[in-house]
Write a protein that binds this DNA or RNA. Structure first.
Lengths: 111, 111
DNA sequence: TCCAATGCTACTATTTCAGTAGCAAAAAAG
DNA sequence: CTTTTTTGCTACTGAAATAGTAGCATTGGA
């Protein structure tokens, strides 16, 4: 279960009381594994254990917690085949795809 | 100083040994305050303490650590007026601007 | 010289994460 | 219908990261 207070847009979050949705998003994305889980689900549903493996074997307790958070934020859910992104989650991930290209450029710049 | 191993693109990072730059980016962004700090620097340089305030008063030890990481990753640095984004950092932040719009939509959807 | 602001270090308390073990339910195999 | 496997998940312990507070050395005015 997610025992940590979730950063609902419209509500104050850690370090910000403005209630701005972007702050909630920043709070959520700043939690370890959240981005990674979204990323690993980009190609379709994965079972709990497959997702765990894809993330390098993170602890099931943490994974379970993160999945609960993502479910509550309507970004992921269960369906045939295991866990998968919701339409909203897919939209969010779409925004991240260009980051992959930027990261390549960044890699060259700092190496 | 940053005592935690930094996720250099090209090197294995936490939970991933592929060395893909996007994984390094995901690792970095998944650290608390990193995104927030980038975000708060979007309008120009801030002093250490101003940045601390902007982030809701996070501990100076953590802020200092994050700044060291961002410096090492060439995303932020010091200049006249305090800490500021590097050109690379500004580019990254640019990629995030659309997220703010998406977050508004997301907020409406889950409220 | 005094004072306030700045950048930062040090230290303790709390929270979060890692790592492992294992159980109940469902599915697959025989 | 049993016997295995697989799956989703909980529990527990130790390690690591973060929060929160205090304070010091330096800088740049008044």
């Amino acid at each position: 279960m997610a025992k940590t207070k979730l950063p609902k847009p419209g509500k104050p979050v850690r370090g910000s009381s403005t209630g701005k949705p972007i702050m909630a998003l920043i709070d959520l994305m700043g939690r370890r594994w959240i981005l990674r889980i979204l990323w690993e689900l980009r190609c379709g549903p994965l079972t709990f254990r497959a997702l765990q493996d894809a993330c390098g074997g993170l602890s099931p307790s943490v994974l379970n917690g993160r999945l609960a958070e993502l479910r509550e934020m309507a970004l992921a859910g269960t369906e045939a085949g295991g866990y998968a992104l919701t339409p909203l989650g897919q939209e969010l991930l779409t925004q991240f795809t260009p980051l992959s290209i930027w990261a390549e450029k960044w890699a060259k710049a700092i190496r």
